[in-house]
Nucleic acid binder design. Structure first.
Lengths: 325, 325
DNA sequence: GACGCCGTTGCGCATGGCGCAACGGCGACG
DNA sequence: CGTCGCCGTTGCGCCATGCGCAACGGCGTC
């Protein structure tokens, strides 16, 4: 059984609901390598009875979270997830600010540009711009990347509070390729480089044949809220080119930071910890919420999505600086 | 109580799990207008006890499906949904084929271009290209649109099997603006226009100040699997311009259809019904699955995501035609 | 300091979720 | 064509879980 019963001889209550935990576990089993799974296989992996899994899937299907292939009887993730994801991403309003700058850099560099935020202990892509280049890196929004060996993760890791860095580096660092840095001392040295030169480089540390450079994006308080990476196939990106692109991605990150109200200064570079943040994992990407905003809603549009009561208004936006001036 | 108990005096069993249904219902309450909700408000709307909702949220938070604002105590949708959505979208492999063509049309037209598929009785956006235009329509991936009054929905509706169209039009058509067509006879006439001219137009039928034109995308069998729309603020899009853009979006849809192997012919224009499809709601966007493919994975890359055992390979793709020469 | 509202948690109880057994469907095999 | 094996689904009895209630601590307001 994959989840401890909520009660163990009345000894411990976890405060969560077993059936919902199981449903979540079912959803998380679908992956890049296996977009389609059957009841029996899911049951085997979760060590549950297949009737249990069948009912879980039936319920998730009713909600649109999975859909069953009528021919094979196997299941896939459903589009209701895309709807909820679209809504989830709306909290990162700086995506709208960043998007044109990402696209500009993608066009200039000929490589893929990605915007990522910290989610727990991993980096998650929340926006992406592709270059008009037939051979390119195809990441995807929602993809989760480890912090210690990716160009998206290192800038996020470097500016975390020291205690959090200590906690993350106290656990074994997973090796993904022959080039993955798994020695915490060596990684700490790399994080110092990120501080010094303002960007990180990762060449085939997480995926062979892929190289990337990433830089931190800061908000008006100087906190790192995201990272931007430029990535592409290694054959096209020797170290010298990586250094050039590192500078370019840092410049773009600085432009976005400026639009978020960041004023570069020595003191501001240091990450600050907000009150209460430590009661939960610090989330540099904590959403800025002032007015309710719909997904894709450009900043600056007043009032609720849909406008006046009974009148639906589209999300028509004006891109550009939001803070200051 | 929002869900009938699984048993009603042993009378009827629905085969689903009440707790999971409730968790799904909680997630679905978050919307564009209200990205953040509290326990008490959710409980009120679902007619559940707030301790029940609190435990549901706690479980969903453990899975990353929601996250709690440590300051306000309120909840928002979490990024784990973006990860699952990214995986869900991978089944629509023609997104990769369509993407450069969408971007090209966005640049040429100066307006937003969106790719949508049918999901149940609604259209859902699965890809989008924005123009480098400061004032533009900001839709979002995952957004759900009604079929009867949107440029994305009408091309999908027009080519459904007649029985399914009858079923959809037998229910009252919801009015969203003063211009929404709610008379089924008038809508049928519009669907005939879609057949005749190959694209649909919707001017402020779903959202005021927004106009759009959409055309169907067909696969190699001639079935409509998606629609493409061009959309923008109405002040910039008088009817003549809409007609021009309608032709442009149809031409792009035809190019994508050609890359999917569609050969235009009189007979092929008629939608065909696949065997067994009628045992479930017809899904013109049924995923094409031949090799397991990761999100963003370009067609043509052999083997599983991550390549050989123990070696992680990035999603580097070659864009361009996949079917035929 | 009192009040009201929030989200959380301990607890007893009723019911919903579970596993078991059996079913029908489907593809492979001889 | 009949048999076999595996799939996903469903009826059923049992009990472990999920539920609502009551009470709690925290926080903002007056």
């Amino acid at each position: 059984m994959i989840t401890r019963p909520q009660r163990s001889a009345r000894g411990e209550r976890s405060g969560t609901i077993q059936s919902v935990e199981r449903a979540v576990a079912v959803l998380k089993l679908f992956g890049e390598a296996e977009p389609e799974l059957g009841v029996t296989e899911l049951a085997r992996r979760l060590k549950l009875h297949k009737s249990t899994v069948s009912r879980l899937l039936s319920t998730l299907e009713s909600g649109g979270f999975v859909q069953q292939d009528p021919l094979s009887g196997r299941y896939r993730l459903g589009l209701q997830l895309a709807t909820l994801a679209g809504l989830a991403l709306t909290q990162y309003e700086f995506r709208d600010i960043a998007r044109p700058l990402l696209q500009e850099l993608a066009t200039r560099s000929g490589e893929t540009i990605t915007l990522s935020v910290l989610d727990g202990d991993v980096a998650v892509n929340i926006e992406q711009a592709l270059a008009p280049n037939p051979v390119k890196h195809l990441g995807w929004i929602g993809r989760r990347l480890p912090l210690h060996c990716t160009a998206a993760g290192k800038p996020l890791l470097a500016f975390l509070p020291a205690a959090q860095i200590d906690r993350l580096l106290s656990r074994p660092l997973e090796r993904f390729t022959a080039r993955t840095v798994t020695n915490p001392m060596l990684l700490r040295r790399e994080l110092e480089h990120v501080h010094a030169q303002g960007f990180a480089i990762a060449q085939e540390e997480y995926e062979v044949e892929l190289s990337a450079a990433g830089a931190p994006v800061r908000d008006h308080r100087g906190e790192v809220v995201a990272s931007i990476t430029v990535s592409g196939p290694s054959f096209r990106l020797p170290l010298q080119r990586m250094v050039e692109l590192g500078g370019a991605v840092r410049a773009t990150a600085d432009r976005i930071s400026a639009q978020l109200g960041h004023r570069p200064a020595g003191a501001a570079v240091m990450a600050t910890t907000r009150p209460h943040a430590q009661t939960r994992e610090a989330l540099p990407a904590a959403p800025v919420t002032r007015t309710p905003a719909g997904p894709g809603r450009a900043v600056g549009v007043a009032g609720r999505a849909g406008g006046a009561k009974g009148v639906r208004r589209p999300q028509v936006g004006i891109a550009g600086p939001v803070f200051g001036s």
